[in-house]
Amino acid sequence: MGEMDFIQNEVLPSLFEGLGTSILLIIPSAVFGLVIGVAIGVFRVFGNPLTEKLASTYVAIFRGFPLVVQLFIWYFGLPHLGIYFSPYTASIIGFSLCSGAYHSEYVRGALLSIKRGQLLAAQALGFTRTGTIVSVILPQALRRALPGCGNELIYLIKYSSLAYMITCIELTGKGKIIASETFKFTEIFMIIGIFYLVMTTIAGRLLQYVEFRLEIPGFEHYGA
């Protein structure tokens, strides 16, 4: 039983501490990522040629660079230009910008699925372009984007484990430290895996709930 005691007394408290850090990374990154994603998606579909180009370039870069490389640039690269971020801040910036690039694709797809007639009807009533997008297009498009964006949020939960690469010691980082001290790699990483599984399951349920709450006739998901 020494094994169980050790895990209960030494490993778990440390992992829970890491879990706390992970959650503190995930929640702000998820929020910023979504906001960025919606904004970029809108610019790509409804922007002028310049903002459309800028937004597309942003997506190309942040989807194209490996996330670890982006984090290294934010944390190790920018100090050479005199810009310093804490590991925590650098991680959030990295995650938000990367997540935003992916979200924007889901949002863009959803925006394109809204029929042109919706736009015409709003314009015919005297809506401004911005008013049309905010009051008519986005409320419909976001409902359609939700499943995709939810997928991205689940990804975010897992790629938050990269933060330890730039010394922001979250769940995976903690685990790696304890594991290399104790050589109990299998046990510790199994536990960590389960932690992530629990987080993604909870997030999945939450997303299902949100989808359910926002469901309105004409936008329901058919099937089982």
Binding site: K115, Q118, L120, P139, G218
Partner: peptide, 12 residues
């Protein structure tokens, strides 16, 4: 005011 052939009500 404008009335369209396919109504274009705001679906949401």
């Amino acid at each position: 005011g404008m009335i369209f052939q396919d109504f274009n009500l705001f679906d949401h």
